[in-house]
């Protein structure tokens, strides 16, 4: 069992967390082209190695950013969305 660190609750078992996609995948404006919507909805970076991802801690319902290695499963950092660079996410 791997432990992930929720920025709000601390280290918890991996089963308490839910994967939410690539960090920085911004929802496009309503009048965007179909290609932009397709890219946002379905296409993924799916990085091999170090990746920045959105996760939800199901116990406290907070979403946050986790930087993680998708090969070794090492977790480099977790941070609350409010602490990430302005404009990277729209909650």
């Amino acid at each position: 069992m791997q432990l992930f660190t929720c920025p709000f609750c601390g280290p918890r078992a991996e089963t308490e967390f839910h994967f939410g996609g690539d960090a920085g995948n911004l929802r496009p404006g309503g009048d965007s082209e179909t290609n932009v919507w397709t890219d946002y909805l379905y296409f993924r970076s799916n990085l091999r190695g170090r990746a920045r991802e959105i996760w939800m801690h199901l116990a406290c319902r907070e979403v946050f950013v986790m930087e993680r290695d998708t090969v070794t499963h090492e977790v480099h950092a977790t941070e609350a969305l409010a602490e990430t660079a302005a404009g990277e996410h729209r909650p």
Binding site: D39, Y42, F43, R44, S45, N46, L47, R48, T70
Partner: peptide
């Protein structure tokens, strides 16, 4: 499973999660 990693080398993304 490595489709995404190879696509990155080719400069595009896929609707795939590994």
């Amino acid at each position: 499973g490595n489709s995404g990693a190879l696509a990155a080398k080719a400069g595009f993304r896929l609707p795939i999660t590994s």
